[in-house]
Design a binder for these strands. Structure first.
Length: 103
DNA sequence: GGATTGACGTCTG
DNA sequence: GCAGACGCCAATC
């Protein structure tokens, strides 16, 4: 069994382009009792990694973790370049872009 | 080893 | 819809 944070990475890596998911969904999918663990795992994310952490937002669709990125502005641009409407650090039509890990 | 903090979510009022 | 309280686990001090 992988450490919980590696499972988080694995789920995030499976998020298709142009789609996003929430901390709670990842936590529920992995059986984590606390969604906060997902955020902690992403916080511990190595700087040189291919994990698209910018596709993970909170339940409101807000980019709550953008300040933790080395380049917060680039994070928004990535989402926009993937076809996701982002305004005021928030995703519009979140229910349209939301993605379930189970799939 | 106790207290604090944190990319959060859900329940209540 | 918004604000406050609680929960839950891991890392850090």
């Amino acid at each position: 069994m992988k450490p919980y944070y590696e499972q988080v990475y694995d789920v995030v890596l499976n998020i298709p382009q142009g789609r996003v998911t929430t901390y709670g969904r990842i936590a529920t999918y992995l059986g984590l009792s606390n969604p906060r663990m997902v955020g902690y795992a992403l916080k511990n994310l190595p700087m040189f990694s291919d994990v698209p952490a910018h596709r993970v937002v909170n339940s409101s669709g807000e980019l709550s973790g953008r300040l933790n990125f080395s380049l917060p502005t680039e994070m928004e641009e990535k989402l926009i370049s993937e076809g996701i409407s982002v305004t005021n650090h928030r995703i519009l039509r979140l229910d349209k872009y939301i993605w379930n890990p189970i799939h």
